[in-house]
């Protein structure tokens, strides 16, 4: 805690110095919300040094507010329109007038029952009932996801690999096009061999597997650089907030 206080005083000293030097601090924000945002941003960023009281405060505030926010969102965006309004529409007349006129749909009793079964986890006598609801939720969602994954990942990849390895353009062989397609096809085939688990990766099979993992690593390297650039833009956004919106150093 002593270190935390040292940091607090260092922060106060820093801004005091800025003020004394009259270095652009005249334009510092007078909006209380901006000050709260700046304080919380600095509190979270202080984790870069080490865990401290400010970080703990910001973390707990962040977690508490978000948990409460999601609970309210879940109630008003899911339970009210998708369950309560379906079973007894007039009850939502004040908040969802368009739905209030609809006839009730009583088959929504089934998800309501599943929800109650799920809450039976809290009962010390019959927590096993919640497993039925769990099994239903996980089973059906997995089944639906399976089809989605099959379409987007598996079949999509096959389609993208169906390319000729000999490319002819304007009646003559395109060396660049053919090389590019060969790299794609060999990359996919070797990548698939790397993910073959029924055989030890030795000999020729091992070579193909190694080529597969090299290609994967090159892809990951490119993806790493690309994503880091996106993250840098997030940091730039925060810095703009601190230096611009808050301190007024940026025009």
């Amino acid at each position: 805690m002593r270190k935390d206080l040292v940091w607090l005083f260092a922060g106060i000293l820093f801004f005091g110095l800025l003020y004394l030097l009259n270095w652009g601090v005249k334009a510092i924000s007078t909006d209380l919300l901006v000050w709260i945002g700046a304080f919380l941003t600095l509190a979270i960023l202080s984790f870069l040094y080490q865990d401290n009281a400010f970080y703990k405060f910001a973390e707990h505030l962040f977690v508490g507010v978000s948990a409460a926010y999601w609970m309210c969102m879940g109630f008003w965006n899911t339970l009210v329109p998708n369950l309560i309004a379906k079973l007894h529409p007039p009850i939502v007349k004040g908040v969802l007038p368009a739905i209030a006129e609809k006839p009730p749909e009583y088959w929504y009793i089934i998800p309501a029952a599943l929800g109650i079964m799920f809450l039976m986890r809290l009962s010390p006598k019959a927590p096993w009932i919640s497993r039925w609801a769990l099994a239903f939720i996980v089973g059906t969602t997995t089944g639906l996801n399976l089809v989605r994954y099959l379409r987007s990942d598996f079949l999509g990849q096959i389609k993208s690999t169906l390319i000729p390895v000999i490319v002819v353009e304007n009646g003559s062989l395109s060396v660049g096009g053919s090389f590019s397609n060969i790299v794609i096809v060999v990359g996919v085939l070797c990548g698939l061999i790397y993910f073959f688990f029924s055989k030890e990766h030795k000999g020729l099979f091992g070579v193909a597997s190694r080529v597969g993992i090299y290609i994967l690593m090159i892809t990951f390297g490119a993806s790493f650089g690309y994503t880091v650039m996106a993250r840098i833009s997030l940091l730039v956004g925060r810095m703009r907030f601190l230096l611009g919106d808050w301190m007024g150093l940026l025009q």
Partner: peptide, 11 residues
């Protein structure tokens, strides 16, 4: 913890 991504990460 919480359903929101970054508060979850902070925790």
């Amino acid at each position: 913890v919480t359903a929101m991504q970054f508060p979850f990460v902070a925790a």
